[in-house]
Nucleic acid binder design. Sequence first.
DNA 1: CAAGTATGATTACATCTGTAATAATTATTA
DNA 2: TAATAATTATTACAGATGTAATCATACTTG
Lengths: 125, 125
Amino acid sequence: MCEIPKISEAEWEVMKIIWSKSSPCTANDIVDALIDVADWKPNTIKTLINRLVKKKALGYKEEGRLYLYYPLVSQAECIKSETKSFVKRVFGGALQPMLVSFLQEETLSPDEIEELRHIIEERKG
Amino acid sequence: MCEIPKISEAEWEVMKIIWSKSSPCTANDIVDALIDVADWKPNTIKTLINRLVKKKALGYKEEGRLYLYYPLVSQAECIKSETKSFVKRVFGGALQPMLVSFLQEETLSPDEIEELRHIIEERKG
DNA sequence: CAAGTATGATTACATCTGTAATAATTATTA
DNA sequence: TAATAATTATTACAGATGTAATCATACTTG
């Protein structure tokens, strides 16, 4: 898992489905799960799956005439990589200004704020 | 400023330069400023500028034979829009899990943590 | 066995992006 | 004024992306 492939917006939806399943799933499982999420034709989803295989974000094993797909990269890794590129693009790489911006500007419920406070307290040690 | 245009990675570098200047600047100003940032030929940067104009992210006025470029969208707006799309893609739209992930996983100095704590305390009101 | 069906493979095509080169135009200078 | 330099405009081109349609093949069913 040396290199995290660059996963496009549409491809992320596919990956999220696959990550959310504990076991490998068929193309149809993915298509079914995506019905609620996106308005894509099954062929579109197959294309996305194939591209993800080509990028080595997904692997598959043949189970009879079916393919069972499974992730080759973990969600945590991808989130990290994606975040890095996002923070670099938008904030020039500085994570903290981003957090400041979010904490100040975004809508958060009291509960959420409390949880964040809790996390920070723990980090302070 | 109804619609925030979608600004690509390379284009962001240009926008950041222009936002950082208080007054409109020429293409050459931008080229000069970007020398430290990216390894692009001047023509490449001109292309990016033109695309940003086409996207209505930049405006310009002719000053003699020069063009003076200025932003048509604010940095804050763009950050917000970009963040939204990022959070949607990666975290399914939930901002808070993202913050949790960052606060837990990323490297932050004690000072930074202290500042974040401070901000949260204030938000708690 | 033949025809329909399910599944994966191949092909399609417009737009966006990264990365420029070249052409056109205008201004400056010898 | 003619050549040169500066600046903007047009064109280029490959790879990524969104969004599929069509083709091929294997399986099921009448």
